[in-house]
């Protein structure tokens, strides 16, 4: 079975149905990207996977265990294996950059403080923030906060990393640096589920790409299939439109 396996997943905000039978899987070490129009439910899917929003049908299996989102133990076990970088970074305002990165590994996961700190410094160095360790988030630009959030997620040493539009707040020179860091990690055995509008990045980094619309995965396939030889009209439409816009 796949490392992350999603079957017939449904979720809604009140009467607005956002996810309507999502089927998706991510293998160990695999990078899968989610693309789709704004409002198609990509962020919502990540919210459901991480337990911030309850599904109203379907099932999520992580590392062979079905996740029961109303069971605290089951949810905790699932969250232990994953990390997410949110679209709006969500750094802790009362902690320095370094503390933001180390707090969960040391305080929650009880890892060795010195090793965690060493790793955190290395990660922050790699995303170009080695000189900002003792600064607070509100003294950083959006792009810098985004990179701290990435370092924070990586420092958790997750088995699967969920990224929601991590490139949107980065300036063009930074995008490549951060992506390199993420790509370096992609060589490890970490699985990734990436939401992005950055088509060149998605194409570069993904093993498979899923196109989402109307609360479902409309098509999933290799980057070549999705971009050069899409099997459905919806995908062709979307890919055609988005590549005309630029990138």
């Amino acid at each position: 079975m796949s490392f992350l396996d999603i079957h017939d997943l449904g979720a809604r905000y009140g009467s607005l149905r956002v996810l309507d039978g999502i089927d998706l899987s991510v293998e160990q070490g695999e990078v899968v990207s989610l693309i789709g129009p704004s409002g198609s439910g990509k962020s919502t899917l990540l919210k459901v996977i991480t337990g911030l929003m309850k599904p109203d049908r379907g099932r999520v299996t992580l590392a062979g265990a079905a996740v029961d989102y109303s069971n605290r133990k089951s949810l905790k076990a699932a969250r232990d294996r994953l990390a997410i970088v949110f679209q709006q970074y969500n750094l802790f305002g009362n902690m320095t950059v370094l503390r933001n990165v180390t707090v969960a590994p040391t305080t929650i996961k009880k890892r060795n403080r010195r090793q965690v700190e060493e790793k955190a410094r290395e990660l922050l160095d790699r995303v170009g923030l080695g000189d900002k360790l003792h600064v607070y988030p509100d003294q950083l630009s959006g792009g810098q906060q985004q990179r701290v959030a990435i370092a924070r997620a990586l420092c958790l040493e997750p088995e699967i990393l969920l990224l929601d539009e991590v490139t949107s707040a980065l300036d063009p020179e930074r995008v490549s640096e951060v992506l390199d860091t993420i790509r370096l990690l992609a060589k490890d055995n970490i699985a990734m589920l990436i939401v992005s509008h950055e088509m060149s990045f998605v194409r570069d980094v993904s093993h498979r790409i899923a196109f989402m619309a109307d609360g479902r995965v409309q098509e999933i396939g290799s980057p070549e299939q999705i971009f050069d030889n899409p099997q459905t009209d919806r995908t062709r439409d979307f890919v055609g439109r988005i590549s005309r816009v630029g990138h």
């Binding site: 990390a83 709006q88 802790f92 969960a104 929650i108």
Partner: peptide, 19 residues
Amino acid sequence: AQLEAAAVMNFTPLQTLRL
């Protein structure tokens, strides 16, 4: 959003309060 980030990192409600 910060509370959500804490929840996903498995902070308990008390840890979220304290930290």
